[in-house]
Every structure is written in structure tokens, then in C-alpha cells.
Computed example of a mutant assay.
Amino acid sequence: MGDGFGTVSTTAFFIEDGDRFVPTEAAGGYWRPNTLGGRFVGGLLGLGLERAYGASDLVPARLCVDLIKMAPKAPLQVATQIIRQGRRLLLAEAQLIADGDVVARANCLYLRETENPDSPTPQSPSWRVPSPHDLLPQPDRGHWEIRPIPADRREAHDTPRRRLAGEGDAPSSAANPPVLGPLSPFEARQAWVRETRPLVEGQAHTPFTRVALAADFASPMAHSSLGSIDYVNTDFTVYMHRLPATEWLGFDMVRHHALAGVAVGECWLHDEMGPVGTINVAAVAQRQA
């Protein structure tokens, strides 16, 4: 199928060649020419970890990706190792290597499934927003399909997300171009996201690789003004109590705080069945090269 509204592209982000992953043109980064976007880095690291250690009774409860440097748009390798393995947990690490140089790393904490206590702790409610199938498609942005949740249909938060005077106003002439498209204002920023391309040619997404590939989206969600993105994230950490059961992932932007060019952000992660976990990101002010 083509790249129109609501369709899936057959062009993958990488082609697997022996023990190397060769980027295609679709995997280009935003910040600098001939580099990879952070989400493609996360996707490859997640794929390597899942191939080595994924198991049906292990929940990847935490995935932390460190974006050590901008990964080149060049053949890449993934090396993995176990840090700690016990009866109830497995902690593993992956490194993304370009020409012998480690450009990113990740660690994943797997927890073995068991049973909830007899006296369960009350669970936080799911968000109450429209299904992605009830929202209008947006133009394909090449990497994913985004369906923003309109401000008048969003869920009201118990803690209002206040904004400072002038925050979110029209960007200055020095601002970077936006990457999100027509999302809602900061105080009502929620969206459904769906992958429209395979990560690796000939291989279908798994629930874990969907999250690993999409989690970097939390940075522009949390750190974008209404008309620009002026922070580049240095990491992202995903906490999950379960893997997603649907291809649509819901991002609910909860917090952004910044001072002296250093920012942190948080999004809650959902699928069509309910809550999945949270994503936290750290970022620094950045001008596009």
C-alpha cells in the first residue's frame, strides 16, 4: 500500500545483512544530516534485547535507552549481555555499535510473572478518550501515523497543567521547525500513534519493538512548544506493567519542566485496552544543524 492516510508503507527502516543492520533512507534523523533518529536507535536496541532474552513469562518492566551520541546513518551492530539473572528477574544490557564505536546503549529489567496479592492495591483508572478509530486521520508523516485527541474531547486531569505567561506562544524566528503537526496545546496534549513501517525488512512488529521504536516520541510530546521543538533528548526510560495488546499507542503528555536549557518530561502510555506504563525523558536545548 502507499503512504496515504491510514496506510502502511512496505519500506522498512533497516535491512538486516548478516550481523549488521543497514539503515534505509526512511531512518534519517531530525537534528543532523546523515544521522539516525533516536527512535530508530531505541527500536534496534529493543529488537536485540528481545531476540536474546525475551520470554513469554518475562515482562520487560523497564527499558532505559541512553543516546550517547548521534548515531550515524551507517551499518550498525547490536551486542547484548546479561548483567544479573535470578529466579524473579533478569537484567540485560545492549550496545549499539557503529564501526567499533558504541553510540547508544540500553538496559532492560525483565520481571517474571506471578500473581497479584489477595488484597490488591487499587489501580489508577484508564484515560477516557476517543478510540483512534473515531478520530480523523492526519497526513502520513513518513515515520508514523498520528491521530491527535482534540482539546474538547480530552480527559480532564486532576492536577491542571498550568503554563507560564508566554509559554507556547508563536515561536521566534530562531526556533527549530516542528515535528508533531497539529497537536493540541500543552495543557491538552494527547495523541494516538501507530507505526506505518516495519523496523527491519521482512519482520513484523512485536508488542515490545512497537514500544521501543515509539518511546522516543515522548520527547517531542513533552518538549515541543506550539510551533517548534528546541530540545533534543539524551535518553528515554519506559516503565511497563504489561506489553501493549494493540498496534495503536496512546501518549498522554503529563509534565515538562526546564531551566537553563535542561528539561525533563513525562508521558503516560496507553493502548486501546487501557494503561500500559510511563515514559520519562531528559533533554537539552538544541539548534538543528
Score class of each variant (00 low, 15 high):
T10Q: 12
T11L: 11
A12Q: 11
D17M: 07
D17V: 14
T24Q: 09
E25G: 13
E25Y: 08
L36M: 07
V41K: 02
G43I: 13
G43T: 06
G43L: 07
A55D: 11
P60E: 02
A61E: 05
K73N: 09
A74R: 15
I82D: 05
D101L: 09
V102Q: 11
C108S: 07
C108D: 00
L109I: 13
L111M: 14
R112W: 02
S124P: 07
V129Q: 04
E155G: 12
E155P: 01
D158W: 10
D158C: 12
T159G: 05
P160Q: 10
P160A: 00
R163C: 08
G168T: 02
A174R: 15
A174W: 05
A175Y: 05
R194Q: 10
P198L: 00
L199R: 00
L199D: 02
H205R: 07
T209K: 02
S219G: 07
M221A: 10
L226T: 14
D230R: 00
V232N: 07
D235F: 04
F236T: 03
Y239H: 15
H241M: 03
A245S: 15
D252L: 08
A258M: 06
A258T: 07
G261E: 07
G261F: 14
V264G: 08
C267G: 09
D271K: 00
M273V: 12
G274T: 08
N280I: 06
N280K: 08
N280M: 14
Q286A: 15
